[in-house]
């Protein structure tokens, strides 16, 4: 209770000087609208986005150990241009041996089922650059978008959590990698992020 009183006084003092400290809901509205309009205007449904996300994870996991649950892919807008925002929290970079092994495994998997893996290859080269560029822009947008997507994703992700740990062979079965992605913890992570920000 005492906290609230102090916060209230602090806010009042700030607002005396014309500072706006309250939660401005119009920004939430604008951000949510932007996102939903992007989806309306393009045909990038949450399902397609989710597919894109899981395929990206499969590719990136060969080179880095990443926080799969916190990886975030969003459609955004920069001026008139539509942009895909990708934010990838990296736990650690893999060493050469690990990468080589992953690549070998991939090739073996390819030989095994040559037809299935066509699209993955092209993504490999671009993925590393994207990561660096978009990580910063993304931090704000993630928070607003997650809630809307979360509900749809929950349905698919019930089984196959075990696969999430199988980083050593991420590309062995790309089709199955799709369901390994666990979406539920994300709202928690996002909440934590928000708290951190507000405390600052």
């Amino acid at each position: 209770m005492s906290d609230n009183i102090f916060a209230e006084i602090y806010n009042r003092i700030l607002s005396l000087f014309g500072q706006n400290v309250k939660d401005e809901s119009k920004n939430t509205a604008v951000n949510r609208l932007r996102l939903v309009l992007m989806q309306d205007r393009t045909n990038l449904t949450p399902e397609i986005m989710n597919r894109m996300r899981t395929e990206l994870i499969a590719v990136l996991s060969k080179y880095v150990e990443l926080d799969k649950e916190a990886l975030d892919l969003n459609i955004g807008q920069e001026g008139e241009q539509m942009a895909l925002m990708l934010s990838i929290p990296v736990i650690r970079a893999k060493d050469e041996a690990e990468i080589e092994q992953a690549l070998k495994e991939e090739e073996e998997a390819k030989k095994a089922e040559a037809e299935k893996s066509e699209e993955d290859e092209t993504d490999v080269e671009t993925s590393d650059d994207d990561k660096e560029e978009t990580q910063e822009d993304n931090s704000e947008e993630n928070q607003d978008s997650e809630t809307s997507e979360g509900t749809e994703n929950d349905v698919e992700t019930s089984d196959a959590k075990e696969n999430a740990n199988s980083e050593e062979e991420p590309t062995s079965k790309p089709e199955e990698a799709e369901i390994e992605f666990e979406k539920k913890p994300i709202p928690k992570i996002e909440k934590n992020k928000k708290e951190e920000i507000s405390e600052e």
């Binding site: 401005e24 809901s25 119009k26 509205a29 604008v30």
Partner: peptide, 16 residues
Amino acid sequence: MAASKDMMSKDDVVEI
């Protein structure tokens, strides 16, 4: 409400 940022402003709507 637009001035207190509790509602989208005309500029927001026009821009979107």
